[in-house]
Structures are given as structure tokens and as C-alpha cells.
Design a protein around this nucleic acid. Structure first.
Lengths: 98, 98
DNA sequence: ACTAACGGTAAGTGATGACTAACGCACTTC
DNA sequence: GAAGTGCGTTAGTCATCACTTACCGTTAGT
């Protein structure tokens, strides 16, 4: 969750969501060096958002559905509560006692 | 989106999702000072995640459904693509040529 | 009007973290 | 086996940011 706070990391995440890719391919289309991409991928992997697959000398990274699913659950949970509270707030005309 | 990167800010966000609150009430139950809470609320407000409502001398903050809705949309969009790509990856038996 | 309570703002400090350069390791191909 | 490619890791630097202290504006009560 906090792993997506950095813009570069979010960019990497979005590119992987579009299509799995290797480290070098990602770094080639990004304004940062390859080690930087590698470090971001490690953070994303530890957060459970991506998974790596060895492919010879290369390593292919792709989105891990479980991680993004956990985020969805977290968001939906708060969404329901927030929506209920907001609805209650709008419908209350003007509470004088508070 | 990046506004939820900080743990303290996420904590404030979750408390507001549970129930709207004033700045002082939030700071009283948090390990940080009141100005810190005020700064976090400003970031959350600029991100469109919370909205403030003047109530006399106090200001009540609550979750803004639009902000959390935008996050949901962003997440769902990437979820669909990632799930399709992952499914395609799993179903591919084992590509010998590569 | 004066006082007290509530909250936003400014300035300054300390720590977290994103980045690059240099190095080492695993795998492949000649 | 030797050279080359693709990645991860380490050390070090620099910027970003979260936090506190002090101050000022605003609103409610006496």
C-alpha cells in the first residue's frame, strides 16, 4: 500500500499491469538507471504486488493479483463505511445539538 | 493516491472513515502534535480524499467519497488488465522456445 | 470588549528514501 | 573455458518530508 507512494514505483507498477517485462526493458523506457528499477521492484515484491519469474539470464516481473486484491479489499472496506457516514451527514438537515 | 503513503496519514484517513472528527479530537488520540495532524489533513484535502466543514470554532473533517471512488476506479482498471495478463501466463503450459 | 478555545501557518531540524556509480554473481554462447 | 549479457547489491550522496515549537487569525462565552 505504502509501496505505491513513489511516482516512479507507481509508473513501474502501471507498466507491469499493462504487460509483464524484464528489468532492462523497464529501465530502457524510464528516466532512471537500471539499479533504481531493481530496487523499486524489490520493494514492490516485498509488498506482494509483483512476482518474479526466472527466464534464463533474464527475470520477468509481472503483477501479483493477490497484492492488488488486498488493496481492493482494504479500499472497499473503508469505502462502505465512509459512504454510509457521508450519506448520514448529507441527509441530516442541520444538527443543532453537537 | 500518493497521499496515503505515510503511515500516520493512513491512520488519520482510517479514523475519518470510521467517523468524522475535528482536528483536536484526532490529535488527542494520536502520538503526534496537533499541527502535524493539521498538515496531514491539508495533504489529504488537496488530494481530494477528505473535505472540511466549519462548525463554529471547530472544523469537522470527513472522507470525501469522490476521492476514494477515484482510487477504486484506478485500481479496478489495473486489476482487470493484470488479471488478464496473469491468466494468460498461467494457462501457457511452458514455452520451450525462449 | 476581553478572554479562552480551536485551528491553520512559518521556520527550523532530523530522518527517511530515491538515486547513481562500482562491484560481484549467474547464465548463455562462442 | 572465456567473453558477454542481464540483475542484484553495496556504499554514498542529496533531496524530500514528517515533525515540533512559536505565532497569528477566528469564533464562542462572560
Amino acid at each position: 500500500m505504502a509501496a505505491l507512494g513513489d511516482p516512479t514505483r507507481r509508473e513501474i507498477f502501471e507498466r507491469l499491469a499493462a504487460a509483464p517485462s524484464s528489468v532492462g526493458a523497464l529501465a530502457a523506457n524510464l528516466p532512471v538507471s537500471r539499479p533504481a528499477v531493481s530496487q523499486h521492484l524489490r520493494v514492490l515484491k516485498e509488498a506482494g504486488l509483483v512476482s518474479e519469474t526466472p527466464d534464463g539470464a533474464r527475470r520477468v516481473y509481472r503483477i501479483d493479483p493477490r497484492g492488488i486484491g488486498a488493496m481492493r479489499d482494504w479500499l472497499d472496506q473503508h469505502w462502505d463505511r465512509a459512504l454510509a457516514a457521508f450519506k448520514d451527514f448529507v441527509e441530516t438537515p442541520e444538527d443543532p445539538a453537537e
